[in-house]
Design a protein around this nucleic acid. Structure first.
Lengths: 137, 137
DNA sequence: CTATATTGTAACTAATACGATTACAGTTTA
DNA sequence: TAAACTGTAATCGTATTAGTTACAATATAG
């Protein structure tokens, strides 16, 4: 199964930005077309990252903790994705083989650089940019 | 389970570059520390991409089709990875919701740009660069 | 104070992807 | 002709993820 947490999270954050106030998990789930519990799990991650606030109880829901212009796509990505985009093999090394002995070090470096390339791009775009795009349909 | 096909493929290609000639799947599997069939599946993908040649029969194996300096990490990546690094949701749209109606288009664009950022980075590095790194251990 | 609506979270299920493994046909060499 | 390879299909085990049910905790409205 492909990991859709970032898409879902961005969708949710965009809804909250457009709404401009509280939205509950049922309404968000209807927009994303998924289950409210799936939404609440993502909301928990976004809250831990300080991007949203949640209100429990009747008439509760979630809202942005800052203005959309001050929330980068990278912040959303970091809130819900933890793994590197290029996995590094952590297998036992074949000691007789020079290549095997070096690969972990080399691949770690490539993986880090790849992540940084992605992060640099995501850092440049804010939730506000996405909201602007919703306008022009 | 994290996708390790690129790491494995790079490891294999580095072995072939260092060997400078034919290596069989058993030797490659020993260096990567996996199963020969896993290696042969990756070799098949690398061959389809024109990066290696394989020789069947006794004393068979695989070797690079070009010099390491003419093989970019992007070529290896493309040979074994097909999916975008940021998945785009392909769910049914909630027609009443403007955000839902726009998200696929917006997310496709973000996903493509993210891929391009990664590809740009991988394009800059060749297998020769990796081989050089094996030296300094 | 009570009924109701909502979050937070645990537990379980189903689907999917991936690596490992077995098996075997086809091919090449000696 | 025997041995050593590749190529590939089929199957298994496991990890990850989304979906779902369930329910305690909390807040609001009346």
């Amino acid at each position: 199964m492909v990991n859709q947490q970032f898409t879902f999270a961005l969708h949710i954050m965009t809804c909250l930005a457009v709404a401009g106030g509280l939205m509950d998990s049922r309404a968000l789930a209807a927009s994303v077309n998924t289950n409210p519990v799936v939404v609440r799990r993502l909301l928990a991650a976004l809250r831990r990252a300080g991007l949203i606030e949640t209100v429990t109880g009747k008439n509760g829901g979630a809202r942005l903790a800052r203005t959309p212009g001050r929330i980068s796509l990278l912040a959303i990505y970091d809130a819900v994705e933890s793994r590197a985009i290029l996995a590094v093999s952590n297998r036992k090394v074949s000691r007789r083989c020079r290549v095997s002995c070096s690969m972990k070090r080399i691949m770690s470096s490539i993986s880090q650089e790849a992540d940084e390339a992605l992060r640099k791009h995501l850092r440049r775009n804010s939730l506000q940019d996405v909201v602007r795009e919703v306008g022009r349909s």
